[in-house]
């Protein structure tokens, strides 16, 4: 399910349940979900990408 499809369905369900005030909060959650899905640690079944170990953090002047 894409984030946009999910958001449409979630807003429709919230309105059906009498919770139309949820709409702006669901839109906020949708932005967070977009960000989460765009992160480079997500796996992809079409290749062998996996969440890998972190790169060495930068250290200066220690």
């Amino acid at each position: 399910m894409t984030v946009d499809t999910w958001l449409d369905a979630a807003i429709a369900d919230a309105e059906r349940r009498g919770l139309s005030e949820l709409k702006p909060m669901l839109e906020t959650l949708a932005r967070a979900t977009h960000a989460l899905r765009s992160a480079d640690f997500n796996g992809d079944a079409s290749d062998s990408r996996q969440a890998g170990p972190p790169k060495e953090p930068m250290k200066k002047s220690l």
Partner: peptide, 17 residues
Amino acid sequence: GETDIRHAKEIGPAYLH
């Protein structure tokens, strides 16, 4: 000194979910 948390911008989205 200084350091870096490379995926810091994903903190909020991960925490929220």
